[in-house]
């Protein structure tokens, strides 16, 4: 009996050692990747914090009901926190008059606060960011949904987080701390958690929420990432954060609540799941 358990333990021990070794090798490799950001970290620390300007990119399509509310909330929270900001509305030719709503808002809040960058028709999210970035005056860029699922009250928290350690990007996460979702049934939650688990396992992204699109970027970081991402649709957000890790950018996280669309329809169908699986495999093989 004793002999069995002894050899059994030695077998287990060997396996454990192998696992530890593998994890150590992976850890060392990843650390060496991220070291180059340290230099950058010290350089940007010297920049005066007070001169920061935040450009908030709002790509819209049929958001006539949500846009005024979002703009009003952004204005309230940014003014309260005393941050300099501008909102860049990139409307993709919405037939519901989103652009007219944006023009009204521009009259109320002024042309330096609301910037309109409309496009003729619905084009990709990535090109919307490139389009908006061209005219962004801020050194920091916020990306968020204009459908009220992302609450502007979190914006000052993103800024605080960013300043803590001069992060290159701060990502909102539904999966940590007080974060959460509203309006999701069991099936939707299960798919979300399952997909997240699989992604964490395969990609080890060091960020808990990959498909969320409420994020704060340094302008040059976003410019670099957008130029290097090829995905379309919502998996674009996933590629952005995975590439960020690949390039060694530092990532901070803020818990956010995601309130599913108050007005309008939310979508999660077979094609979204297929897109997700596709993107996951692509990133698994290439990053």
């Amino acid at each position: 009996m004793l002999a069995i358990s002894k050899s059994f333990y030695s077998l287990i021990l060997t396996w454990c050692c192998i696992f530890v070794l593998i994890f150590y090798v992976v850890y060392v490799l990843e650390e060496s990747n991220s070291n180059e950001t340290d230099l950058h970290f010290h350089k940007t620390l010297l920049m005066a914090e007070e001169n920061n300007k935040y450009s908030i990119l709002l790509p819209t399509y049929n958001e006539v009901e949500n846009l005024p509310i979002v703009v009003w909330l952004i204005n309230r929270h940014m003014t309260e926190a005393g941050h300099d900001f501008e909102i860049i509305v990139i409307d993709d030719g919405s037939p519901d008059g989103t652009l007219d709503a944006a023009k009204q808002l521009q009259k109320i809040y002024g042309e330096n606060k609301i910037v309109l960058r409309p496009r003729e028709k619905k084009l990709g999210l990535g090109t919307a960011y490139i389009h908006g970035l061209k005219h962004a005056k801020g050194n920091f860029i916020f990306i968020m949904d204009a459908d009220l699922s992302h609450h502007p009250k979190f914006i000052p928290q993103f800024i605080e987080k960013q300043r803590e350690r001069d992060y290159d990007l701060v990502s909102g996460s539904r999966y940590i701390g007080d974060g959460g979702v509203h309006g999701w049934d069991f099936k939707r939650k299960l798919i979300s958690r399952g997909a997240n688990f699989l992604t964490q396992l395969l990609l080890r992204p060091r960020a808990s929420d990959l498909t969320g699109s409420f994020r704060l970027y340094k302008k040059h970081v976003l410019e670099n990432l957008v130029g290097n991402c090829v995905s379309k649709g919502y998996v674009f957000q996933m590629e952005m954060i995975i590439r960020a890790r690949q390039f060694g950018y530092t990532i901070g996280e803020v818990p956010i609540t995601f309130v599913d669309r108050v007005y309008g329809e939310s979508k999660l169908g077979g094609s979204e799941i297929f897109q997700f699986a596709n993107a996951l495999l692509y990133l698994f093989a290439t990053t």
Binding site: H151, Y175, D178, G179, G180, V181, H182, G183, W184, F186, K189, L190, S192, R193, G194, F197, T257, F258, V259
Partner: peptide, 15 residues
Amino acid sequence: VLYRTFTFNNAELAA
């Protein structure tokens, strides 16, 4: 996954 699904915050207050 099941544990995380059941403990996923519902954000009722936020809504």
